[in-house]
Amino acid sequence: MSLTIRELVFAYPGQPAVLTIEELRVEAGQMVAITGPSGSGKTTLLQLIGGLLHPQQGGVEGGPPFESIRWVFQTPTILGRRTVLDNLLLGLHQRRWDQSRADLAAGQALVATGMDQLADRPAGSLSGGEIQRLQIARALVGRPSLVLADEPTGQLDRTNTERVVASLAALRTSDSTVIVATHDPLVADACHRRFELRNGVAVEV
């Protein structure tokens, strides 16, 4: 699923425009990094693509419905009292997947993110890096058309960042379109393409 941002203008109420993007096209199955200094509007752009915010002008063409988007949040967003495996299967209950298919997909996602040893641990007992990998695995498992990740390594040290980047590789090779907001060069380098936000404008670098 490809998506195109066209002639998009967005401003928070009573403030000058944060984003004025003429055109930004993301091809289906690609993984794209959005970089830029703090306050440049990376998070805002992800929220616009995900439909959590609405632009004053223009818009996102080809964006999937809200239910088909998976998110990787900067802050841990998991069910801490449920197991890692339960957290992975969470999104699958409303699809008509049978148990064996769901288990297979979950197993593959766990292996791809190096989490297979932790499947039965309560998610609340994971480390920060493991939680981020769990979120990535959760984004992988449902084969969503679009994954939006905001600073997936924002709170991690070097070692854990490298592990998460390795997990992101699984997302890059998946069929899903992936957009990652980051200021970490390691993450940006793991993507197919990279856009930088400067003064509200997106420039490919």
């Binding site: 988007i69 998976r70 967003t77 069910l79 969470l90 959760r138 449902g142």
Partner: peptide, 16 residues
Amino acid sequence: RSEMALYRTVGSSRGQ
């Protein structure tokens, strides 16, 4: 409600 938000972000509809 943050748990409910989580369910929504993994594809559960409002009704579910």
